[in-house]
């Protein structure tokens, strides 16, 4: 027999999957638009707002489930994590929007070298996919791989900033705009890693210590 709580948990799960799909699309579209010099601010802003709206709905439902059913053990861990995971997914949307604003702030950046951004963006997109796949499959091992990838992204960001400080990037507009985008990507990677941590917590109850 289906427990009444299961109906709510299934609804939460579906909302998370909807957010996962939309937030992935937002990040991918924003990065592609940046490299192609396209303005997609309006579109991404709408998606970002929608993500925030669903996140609020998830929080409401999670609190309602706690109040009505007093969940424990894996149910409680899932419900708690659903709020944290959707916060991360909502942040994907917000950073995607922030990426789109860089073009409007700096104007044409087509002459800049995008290679570091493309390299980091590829890694971050893989992290997003892995974090979502780990959630869908409740795959602890896959979730654990995200931490190392996050370290790699952090290092890429730090190295780029170091290069600017050492003045190896001579074009100020290119280097500042790239730094902003790399920073947004680095934050997205943090949230993807955090989603992986929540997957581990849902399955094992183990809280991964913050770095």
């Amino acid at each position: 027999m289906v427990r009444l709580l299961d109906l709510g948990i299934e609804k939460l799960n579906n909302m998370i999957l909807d957010m996962a799909e939309l937030s992935t699309k937002a990040v991918t579209t924003a990065i592609q638009a940046y490299t192609e010099g396209k303005d997609v601010r309006k579109e991404i802003f709408e998606w970002s707002e929608k993500l925030r709206f669903i996140q609020d709905e998830v929080s409401e439902l999670a609190v309602e489930l706690i109040a009505r059913y007093q969940p424990v053990a894996s149910d409680l861990r899932f419900i708690k994590s659903s709020m944290e995971i959707t916060y991360g997914l909502s942040r994907f949307g917000r950073y995607a929007y922030d990426i789109t604003t860089v073009l409007s702030m700096f104007g044409d950046l087509s002459k800049c070298d995008h290679s570091t951004i493309i390299k980091m963006a590829d890694k971050v997109k893989v992290m997003i996919c892995k974090s979502i796949e780990a959630f869908i499959k409740r795959d602890v091992e896959l979730a654990r791989t995200l931490s190392n990838m996050d370290d790699e992204v952090d290092n890429m960001y730090k190295e780029y900033v170091k290069r600017i400080i050492e003045n190896k990037e001579s074009n100020l507009r290119c280097s500042v705009s790239a730094t902003l985008i790399l920073r947004y990507l680095e934050r997205i990677a943090d949230h993807a890693n955090s989603i992986g941590d929540k997957v581990i917590y849902i399955i094992t109850g183990e809280s991964v210590p913050r770095k």
């Binding site: 424990v72 053990a73 894996s74 409680l76 861990r77 109850g205």
Partner: peptide, 11 residues
């Protein structure tokens, strides 16, 4: 026990 039971039966 209520956050992280070890045994499946308890869960």
């Amino acid at each position: 026990i209520f956050k992280q039971p070890e045994k499946e039966l308890t869960e």
